[in-house]
Design a protein around this nucleic acid. Structure first.
Length: 388
DNA sequence: AGCCGGTGTCATTTC
DNA sequence: AGGAAATGACACCGG
């Protein structure tokens, strides 16, 4: 054991397994609640492992502080999981152990898995398939966010509510049964503060199921590099020797070559494709938002320009109107002036209301009675109508 | 506590 | 037909 302080928990766990206790027993054992179960069993544990009464103050040590590969064979873990083999995450862990991954690395996957569909372990329930019912392990905190932020409570969106209330799901339970994990079993013995609280209701469960597990990606809390994204964390755990940026930015051909030449497992390929897809989409979304913003700005600019143009046209229109009025006035004055200088046959001044001044195209100007012009205009109009 | 803007992600549509 | 890009919708976070 790497971490002596946590060794008894691991021993408890292995005892649970070897003596064929149910996960429920494991929970009882480690919660130190003799009244909750067979007290003989509990005492037996204490005899074998006197330290087991110690309160768990550092749950991380349960999984992360110890190297389970030294304790369990793959078969051990395979036997531990439910006979019906419903637990994808556990199967995945077994798979990962078979492939030589460090359990800590695998556990990081689970802890981050609830935040996203980073690993498409089960396409049937896609995004919710990575839910890990370990959030809110009250041994260290009862605050969901806080637990999550420690990277301890991988967030199964609807499971978190159960664990929040100290209700732990087992293979036989109706709710959440397909999403229990090894990590859950390891963590359940820290659920000693909230055991008295009511279990979740079906309504609660439904509510949580409706909620999309569409979480914003968090950081990798358990990695040595806390600045890693969860995808990078997954990649690190699966020993993928490429950064997110490299995976995303390389050309498609290079990416395909990478997949083909590196003898990657299906899980790794899946993860790489997911990382690339999400990375590309992230950039696409950013560009899309930029474009949308630019489009809005451009439209606002257009509106502004059109308003300016409208004001300008209005000014121009009123200016033209004024000019027309002035020209009419001038023409009127000129008309009167001309008429005042002219005399009719009887030598009287020409009345401008009865006569009009006509200008011909050959520059000749003559004056004629208005009624003559109007009748002549009528005739001309009639002629035009007939010609048409 | 509620609002809002920014962001990542998924599902779907468009290219 | 298949894949990439674009986009709408949603959830989450932090101010």
């Amino acid at each position: 054991f790497q971490d002596p302080s946590s060794s008894h928990h691991n021993i408890s766990f292995i005892q649970t397994h070897h003596q064929c206790f149910s996960p429920r027993d494991a929970t009882i054992l480690s919660t130190d609640y003799p009244t909750q179960s067979n007290s003989e069993t509990h005492l037996q544990r204490q005899e074998s492992f006197p330290q087991s009464t110690t309160n768990i103050t550092n749950p991380e040590s349960l999984l992360h502080g110890s190297d389970l590969t030294g304790l369990f064979s793959v078969d051990d873990i395979r036997n531990l999981i439910a006979p019906d083999g419903n637990f994808d995450e556990i199967k995945f862990m077994v798979l990962a152990l078979e492939e030589g991954f460090h359990p800590r690395e695998v556990s990081q996957l689970f802890e981050e898995a609830g935040s996203d569909s980073g690993l498409s372990l089960n396409s049937n329930h896609s995004t919710t398939s990575y839910s890990v019912c370990s959030e809110g392990a009250s041994g260290y905190t009862s605050d969901v966010k806080s637990a999550s932020s420690h990277g301890l409570g991988a967030v199964g969106s609807h499971c978190q509510e159960h664990t929040k209330y100290g209700h732990v799901e087992y293979p036989g339970d109706s709710e959440c049964s397909g999403e229990a994990t090894l990590e859950q079993f390891l963590h359940t013995h820290t659920y000693n503060q909230l055991l008295g609280q009511p279990a979740s209701t079906p309504e609660h469960h439904q509510q949580m199921q409706m909620k999309k597990p569409n979480k914003v990606k968090g950081k990798c809390h358990n990695s040595t590099d806390t600045n890693l994204s969860s995808d990078e964390c997954h990649a690190e755990a699966l020993r993928i020797p490429f950064s997110d940026d490299e995976i995303v930015s390389m050309p498609m051909d290079s990416f395909k070559t990478l997949l083909a030449k590196n003898h990657l497992t299906d899980t790794q390929v899946l993860l790489l494709r997911d990382i690339r897809r999400r990375g590309k989409n992230k950039v696409a979304a950013q560009n899309c938002r930029k474009r949308k913003l630019n489009a809005i700005l451009s439209l606002e600019e257009d509106v502004c320009n059109l308003q300016t143009q409208k004001e300008s046209l209005k000014k121009e229109h009123s200016q033209c109107s004024r000019s027309i009025r002035q020209m009419k006035q001038k023409l009127n004055n000129l008309y009167r002036d001309i008429c005042s200088r002219l005399r009719d046959n009887q030598g009287r001044p020409v009345n401008p209301r009865q006569y009009v001044i006509c200008c011909h195209s050959d520059s000749s100007v003559f004056i004629m009675p208005k009624h003559f012009v109007t009748s002549k205009q009528k005739q001309d109009n009639e002629k035009e109508q007939k010609q048409k």
